[in-house]
Computed example of a mutant assay.
Amino acid sequence: MVYGEVMQDKVGAAPAGGENLLFLTDDQLRRGIEAMFFAYRAFTADPDMILTELDYGRAHHRAIHFINREPGLTVTALLDVLGVTKQSLNRVLRTLIEDGLVESRIGRRDRRERQLYLTEKGALLERRLSEAQRARMRAAYRAAGPQAVAGFRQVLEAMMDQETLRQYHALREMPE
């Protein structure tokens, strides 16, 4: 769809709600930006409390999330997914390894690679961190309905640059 076209549902009628044109005002865009800020704050609030107790930050949470998502993920791949510097990731991983949450193993194909795995303790923390987020997402998805969920995902994907979108799609194709 080209900017400026009227968004239409499957039967061709413009959706209700008054914001059916893609020519959005600065105020409408500002409200969308603010909604994202507040939603993100709510989405991260519960994990942030847990992370604070452990003297960890959101970078630790993201690392734990993606290591859980793909056991055996290499340090290089994690750097790519997180989009952080090697130095900052090394600080995060060093802490997680020292605290017994992550295990680093020598790569099977390339001994220079380091593959990352959550320990049992790390898996328990990951579940604790993501439990509230899953509950929040589930409730929001149910309240909004399937069309809104699909539209939300479409908006998020449209905000991603091509490389980020490629990474996201690669994750979606992984077995769950």
Rank of each mutant, 00 (worst) to 15 (best):
M159Y: 06
L78W: 01
R108E: 13
G145H: 04
A135D: 07
D99H: 09
P146M: 13
L96M: 03
A140G: 06
A148Y: 03
L93A: 03
Y117F: 15
R114M: 07
R127C: 04
K86Q: 13
M137A: 10
T74I: 07
A123T: 05
G72E: 03
E98T: 07
Q87V: 13
T164C: 06
L129H: 00
Q167H: 14
E98C: 06
Q133N: 02
R114C: 08
D161I: 09
S130Q: 14
D80H: 12
I106Q: 07
Q154Y: 08
A135Y: 02
L156K: 09
R114E: 09
N90Y: 11
L93S: 03
T164K: 12
K121H: 03
R138S: 12
L165W: 05
A139D: 13
E173G: 05
R94M: 08
L116Q: 03
G107P: 06
R166H: 11
I106H: 03
L171R: 08
P71C: 01
Q115M: 05
R153S: 15
Q133S: 05
L129F: 00
E98Q: 13
F152Q: 10
A123F: 00
L89Y: 00
A143N: 10
Q87K: 15
R105L: 09
Q115R: 13
Q147P: 09
L116R: 02
L156V: 14
L78I: 03
L82T: 01
R91N: 06
